[in-house]
Design a protein around this nucleic acid. Structure first.
Lengths: 196, 196
DNA sequence: AGTTATATATACAGGTCTGTATAGTGTCAA
DNA sequence: TTGACACTATACAGACCTGTATATATAACT
């Protein structure tokens, strides 16, 4: 049998799209199910069919956000080809550009960790997973680029990246997040062998 | 007339202390007035006498948090004496130590900005004010230390500091926030004239 | 003793929240 | 035509939220 009819998947998509915007802009606790129902144009029972609880919806949103992040990540480093050193430069140019875009409101995983302090909550757990993935990916790139201590470099770079997202959330598109490129470049220049 | 009797000020203090812990741990929206009333041991009407609305209580909390931060700041740079260059080193050793302490749960102004996205909300406004003060203070120190571009250096350092607080909130006391000292030192070494 | 200010206890109004219950509509396929 | 399925519309339960109303107790100062 066809497992999804046309209407079924679009309703779910519509709910998730609406919830994403609302969660990202207003925070998880500030957005009620009723608001998502109204703005998505579906019936409440349809929402609860696809997402049995609000937490389930939050989890679906965060999982999709994680995938979106890695799509963005790949695209940001793509111009640098296969050279990890250049990829890291390109990445932090991408971060600055992202934070300068008007629709950027910081990192949703930061907000999830703050909104759900308990480590048991799936929101906090997914936020942690996301940051661990970021650390691992940065470590890998740093190692490929020849860093003597790739773990340390990756951790320092993630500090800058998260700092940039904080700045973006607080100050908007004209924040000091623009300095992330320069700061990352200095860390890279000091801890990587020179570009050949 | 004496404007405050003994009991009056301790009740207000008790309310503010309790609210501080709860807001910092659980977030602003997650904590209800009734919870603060219960845990502080005062009557609800007493709370509303000192703080006519929850927003007023939040404002009082954030203003006191700002003062606490600058107390901590002064104490963190005190061992470095009057030398701005050494003060900046000491500051970021202090940030790493703070983030490594078990009671650290990140920066409450980050949480305020995320919880209250509207720039009109006093919570967001106070968060912005706090970060602007931090930028200005760092710029001043960078200038005193002889930085050719003190604004840029201050902005880069604030990225690191906020990144460290994010790490602390997410990962707890054993986070990559420890790398903030090393990263800041590299930025300082590159952008300040050498220590005499 | 009497006045005033401070704090308590408790109940409640009116709103919002998550999640459920119920009944009905429209569509597609056998 | 019948039945299965996705979706809609609406009402509601039960909890929690902010803020107020009311009546009372306590303590200090005159």
């Amino acid at each position: 049998m066809k497992e999804t009819t046309r209407g079924a998947s679009t309703a779910r998509q519509q709910i998730l799209d609406t919830a994403s915007t609302l969660f990202y802009h207003n925070g998880f606790r500030a957005v009620g199910i009723d608001t998502i129902v109204e703005q998505s144009g579906v019936a409440k029972m349809t929402l609860y069919r696809y997402f049995p609880s609000k937490d389930d919806l939050i989890v679906a949103y965060l999982e999709r956000s994680n995938l979106s992040f890695w799509d963005w990540f790949k695209q940001a480093i793509a111009p640098a080809g296969d050279d990890s050193h250049r990829q890291l430069y390109a990445l932090f140019e991408g971060v600055a550009a992202l934070c300068a875009s008007p629709q950027c409101l910081g990192c949703t995983f930061q907000h999830a960790a703050a909104d759900f302090p308990s480590l048991d909550h799936p929101g906090h757990r997914l936020a942690l997973d996301h940051k661990r993935q970021a650390l691992e990916r940065l470590r890998e790139m740093a190692a490929n680029a020849g860093a003597p201590d790739p773990v340390a470099l990756a951790e320092q770079l993630l500090l800058l990246m998260d700092g940039a997202f904080v700045a973006s959330r607080m100050f908007g598109k004209d924040s000091h997040a623009r300095q992330v490129t320069q700061a990352a470049a200095l860390l890279l220049d000091t801890q990587l062998p020179p570009l050949h």
